[in-house]
Every structure is written in C-alpha cells, then in structure tokens.
Write a protein that binds this DNA or RNA. Structure first.
Lengths: 208, 208
DNA sequence: GTCTATATTTCGATAGAC
DNA sequence: GTCTATCGAAATATAGAC
C-alpha cells in the first residue's frame, strides 16, 4: 500500500487540534506524547511541527481559542436588560449550555493551567477573570436593585461558576436526568444561592 | 563533605510522601519525575523504591490516605442531630475547614483520578461517593422535615460540594477576606441554595 | 508536506557494591 | 539503606531526502 505523498495541510491542521483536544482532555497534557497525537492524526510525529511551534504552543492555542469562544458567545448571547434575576438566570443557562457543548475544552481550560508557561498563564488568567466579572456585574446590579442578595459579589461569582462548571464532571447524556432538567435544577439552586426571592411555587418541585 | 552512609528509613519514608504530595499538587503527577522527588527528599532516585513499589502506588497511597482521613474526620466531627439546617451548616463548615488545611491533598484527590489504574480508580471513586452520600443524607432529611428544599438531593449534593471545594482554587491566607469570613459567606450561600428558610436578618450582611 | 532517521534527554525501574 | 551505574524505553524536536 503506497503512502500518499501529496499535501493535506488543509485537513491535517484542524485534525491536529481536534485530536490534541480530545487526548489532552482524556489523559492530561503531560501524559500525552506528540507521537500519540501524530498516530491518531495519521502522520509522523515530526510532521506535527509544521502546524505548531511546539507542544506548549499547541496547548496554549487550544486554551486561548476556548476562552475567546466563551467570551464571544457570551457577548452575542442576547442577554436581557433590567431585572438582575433574569440576567442571572440567562447567565446560568448560557454557561451550562455552552460548557456542555464543549466538555473537552472546558476540562482542559481549568485542568491544564499549571502546564502553561508563566506568560501564557497570565494571558489565560486574564481572560478567565474577564468572564467572572461578567457574572459579578450582574450580582452587583441585583444587589443595588435589591432583587439579589449575596454577602460578597466577587466571592459569590467564583462560587457560582464553580458550581455550574461542576456539572461537567458528572453529567452524561442518557443518564437519570435530561440535559434540560439538569439545567433547570441548577438554575433554581443558583438563583436561591444568590438570594433571589423564591418564585411562586418554589416550595414544590420546579415545573417540567 | 562526606555523605551519610547510615540508615534513615524512619524519616525518608514520611519525607517521600510529603515531597510527592507537594510536587504532584504543584505540577501534576505526570509532569513530576521520580528523580525530582528524590532530589528534594535528598536521596538518589533508586532509593525511593525502598519505600514505594512504583510511581503509581505512590499516587494511590496519597489519594487513599486523604480520602480515609476525610471520612474518619467526618465520623469524629460531632455532627449535631435533628434539624437538617444545622446538620447542613455543620457539614459545610467541616468541609471548608478540613479541605483548607489539606489543600495539596484535596487538589490531587480530584485532579489525578485519571492517572490511576482502573482498579485504583474504582477504590477512590467508591470513597468519594461515600462522602457525597453523607451530604445527600442530610439533604434528604431536610426535604422530609420540610426545613430544606432541593429539587434533587443527589444532584444538589454534587453541586454543593463542587461549590465548597472551589474555595481551594482561589483562597490564599492574607487576602482580602479572612478564613472565617469566607467560611461564613459560603455557609450562607450553601444554606440558601439548599432552600433553607433565610434566618432573621439575612437580608443584611451576615454578622461578624 | 511528509517522510525516515536520528540527536539528545529524560524517564521508570533494577542490579550489585558497600 | 543508600549508593553508583545502567538498562531499555520513550520523550521532544530537528535534519535532510524526496
């Protein structure tokens, strides 16, 4: 079986990124070798260096692309204005849905921070904080309005994001609860944790 | 400077474990070499194998010891009986305090699961679930009493633990908020998220 | 653009001297 | 019990042929 001598740069580039994303998420950056990635892409290890300067740049590009995508999607998410309770619910639903659709990238984005060089770490840290501040602004507005009640907006933002991102650590499609049901339950807990006055009927099971 | 030829097994064993815990937490299991550990312990790499069968056993022992310690400390924590709200507050405070005192072990315990062999993974997974079930039992009791209100006890248990454990990702001694203040804020959010009726005065800042 | 071949390091783990 | 020395495998990355 003769090997293909032709150029396939247009598909090898994207393939490299998608394979690396999957393997880094499954086994961890440090545990995955360039040879493993190359084998799954279908090229030799040396060929990968046509598409990435080195292994570190590959990790950084994946993580930066993810954070850029999160912030861009949030900016385009048609957030409601006014009532902070509605804005908080919108944020929670956005976060859960966006992150559910990109489980591998999410996992890498917060598991592999320590494998970044200091310079790359600083860039990602800044993007992450920018996202946190979006939530914090909602909590501050709610506090000012009196529709939300959190003891400390900065701390609450981190706590709520930790809770929401935690969905990814256990949720599997086809389990006991549907994706929509899980989303509703988390939204309920987030609103309560943020001190939103319980909506009518919240003493019973939430609808659906 | 002559090298010590004598036996120091009594201190090298514990030193190995404490160095490995610190380095695994900082750089990740896969990124730390036995040579690095040996260098910090102050022995040659080969000498480590007198105290551990291999690198995998070293990781597993650290993780299992941690989970055993969590469960033992919880069992001895003098949990109150009766009112589920008080039991939930006790759990939250226990969790934050115990985990704050063992940040490295906590970090490893949930970051390095994927680096365990399947057999070792199963053992740790079981211990982790046992701990989750302690919280779930409290939530179920509160649901039955009517003092707590969560849409799904199993899911709420995971969500609350994710939120509480998240403290470790950002808290540093000497920051804007004291350890006790952070604990109070998290307890407040946990109780609210679990649907505990707000205590008198919770509309203002909590005391302290 | 992809290949083979390889330079260079470093890895986990072991053997045998003392 | 710790050392030196080392095995065999695998790592990242590069050089040069085609």
């Amino acid at each position: 079986m003769a090997r293909k001598p032709g150029s396939r740069a247009d598909i090898t580039g994207p393939r490299l990124r998608e394979v690396a994303l999957r393997l880094f998420a499954r086994d961890g950056y440090a545990a995955v070798s360039m040879r493993q990635i190359a084998a799954e892409v279908g090229v030799q290890a040396g060929a990968l260096y046509l598409y990435t300067a080195d292994k570190q740049s590959l990790l950084f590009d994946l993580m930066k692309s993810h954070m850029d995508a999160v912030l861009a999607a949030w900016a385009e998410s048609a957030a409601p204005e006014g009532d902070a309770k509605l804005r908080l619910e919108h944020f929670a639903r956005f976060h859960i849905r966006f992150h559910a659709a990109r489980a591998d990238a999410v996992f890498i984005a917060y598991m592999e921070m320590r494998n970044l060089t200091p310079e790359n770490f600083a860039v990602l840290e800044d993007l992450r904080k920018r996202y946190e501040r979006e939530l914090e602004a909602i909590l501050q507005a709610g506090q000012a309005e009196g529709t939300l009640n959190v003891p400390d907006t900065k701390l609450a933002a981190m706590a709520l994001i930790a809770m929401l991102t935690g969905v990814n650590t256990w949720f599997r499609e086809g389990g006991r609860l549907s994706r929509d049901r899980v989303e509703d339950i988390y939204v309920d807990m987030v609103l309560k944790a943020a001190g939103a006055q319980a909506p009518a009927g919240s003493g019973e099971n939430i609808s659906r």
